[in-house]
Design a protein around this nucleic acid. Sequence first.
RNA 1: GCCCCCAUAGCUCAAUAGGACAGAGCGCCGCCCUCCUAAGGCGGUAGUCCCCGUUCGAAUCGGGGUGGGGGCACCA
Length: 591
Amino acid sequence: MKKLLDIISEVFADTFASCGYDKKYGKVTISNRPDLCEFQCNGAMAAAKEYKKAPFLIADEIVAKLTEDAACDMFEKVEMVKPGFINLSLSQHYLASYVNEMSQDETLGFTPSGEPKKIVIDYGGPNVAKPLHVGHLRSAVIGESLKRIHRFAGDTVIGDVHLGDWGLQMGLIIEELHCQKPDLVYFDESYTGEYPSEAPFTISELEQIYPAASAKSKEDPEFKEKAHTATLKLQEGYAPYRALWQHILNVSVTDLKKNYEKLNVSFDVWKGESDADPYIPDMIQMFVDSGVAHESQGALVIDVEEETDTKTIPPCIVRKSDGAALYATSDLATIIQREQDYKPDEIIYVADNRQEMHFNQVFRVAKKTNLCPNTKLTFQGFGTMNGKDGKPFKTRDGGVMRLETLIQSIHDAVYARIMENRTVSEEEARTVAEIVGLSALKYGDLSNQASKDYIFDIDRFASFEGNTGPYILYTLVRIKSILEKYTASHGEATFSHTVNTKQTATEKTLMIELTKFNATIQAAYDELAPHKICAYIYDLSNAFNKFYHENNILGESDPEKQQGFIALLQITKNVLETSIDLLGFSAPDRM
RNA sequence: GCCCCCAUAGCUCAAUAGGACAGAGCGCCGCCCUCCUAAGGCGGUAGUCCCCGUUCGAAUCGGGGUGGGGGCACCA
């Protein structure tokens, strides 16, 4: 479905053209003065520059032309104001027909502007054997939303968790296991049998093994050396270590999946750095053969400076002086792997802002060496999650908070709020608290621009008042409740109503708000900006609540008018539900 | 030292092409529940870090400052 603003803009563009002006000045926008009008066109003022003519004269011409044209039944009002604004109000029957059409559409009137693409979204980046902490939250929450928005727009999306499952950390764990459980068959070099299918450790053991190993390696050079050797053996394919590594991976991934599930975050593929490893030798060889790479201080590097740079961007190191691969190597090899496996049109990396230069380097190397000539590489950085003091979010004692702990505290806060003045069973309150808590957490994060730092304030996010997830859910629950009551007395078959062609003020405002859905989703899609969806559903919820207060829906005596109300509630519910799904959470039936 | 990002009401965030009077929420002060969930609605309070410039018009663009965060090759 065409966006309402585009339809109106076309009418205006034609009018500008027929008056002898460039079509481009016909652009119509949402009014920023709702007290004066619903939509506005400022083109006359922009055109005044080009045509050296007073803006109000141009605007007058346009208004006059528009008023005599038939298209004018679209509008209730078209008028010129002061310097050269053209103010519009939409006619009620036109608005109603637009909303009705929208409600019949599977995607609620949203038709993506471009061709469907294939996209890989790289979000997550957890390390195996380490619990998720708050630093993983934003990547997961933002990435998940972007994935859903792209899918809604018809794109094929592959969400990849991109595990940190390779490198020295694995050697450290293996070596520490060696110390703690030397009798395991994996450490018996004479062992020739099958390796057990059961992992020789639990997730909680694993979680304590890594920090122990990491600490030990800092104090004990001999241990570090052994870990290094173990890493090397693993990477060379030494069977017992490979078997052990597989166990570490399995145990860890099972646990990670469980935790991501709590966040309503899921990945299509669980690939990791290890999957890129096989591509590294050939890639390095290609870098050398093609002459783009050169040696510098013992390392193999590729220059990525460009003439237009305002800042110096250092060469990208693709091989350390000891011959080992590093972060950039792995990311480059991953691009090759993705090209081979998926041939994506675009790869979007959702990562901390601090990694911007790293990705900049990687992207430039990839383009320079033709790893992915037809693939757009996008870095979507996100800011730091700070505590109320404005400094990076920490636990009371200054440590890194586990994600589980954070989620639990949100649940508790919401649970307490529900129990405060409700008499639902404790059990129901628990279930509802999880759903509502997730909305608090995700909405709190996503309502901010991704690239900016934000302050994580659990009390504010979990509040049921103001611009919060729970407030949105509350509005949705209220609509559901009314529809349920209506259905109980009128039966299911009554849901084919259409919205009213004569509207009260708040009813019309609500409808206009609904028409903005497709443009909002388009903007969120184009700009990778879930916060625009948050802002939209907050406005929509407010519009609904005002309508709700002005009109008694179930008590309406005119059955036709009431049916119109019900239709309006239906579509409002659909838009809200669809929107929160794009953000990655859902609503309970009651709260 | 060099470079990048950020700066909007007491606090947390918006602002769709450079457009009209910079919008919300929290907080604070009033008013509204015999009525579909008052978890709400209505009204009041208060702001673009500073200076200069471009423009009919600047939070937005340019120049200069101040303050905060971050990055500057073998960590990820």
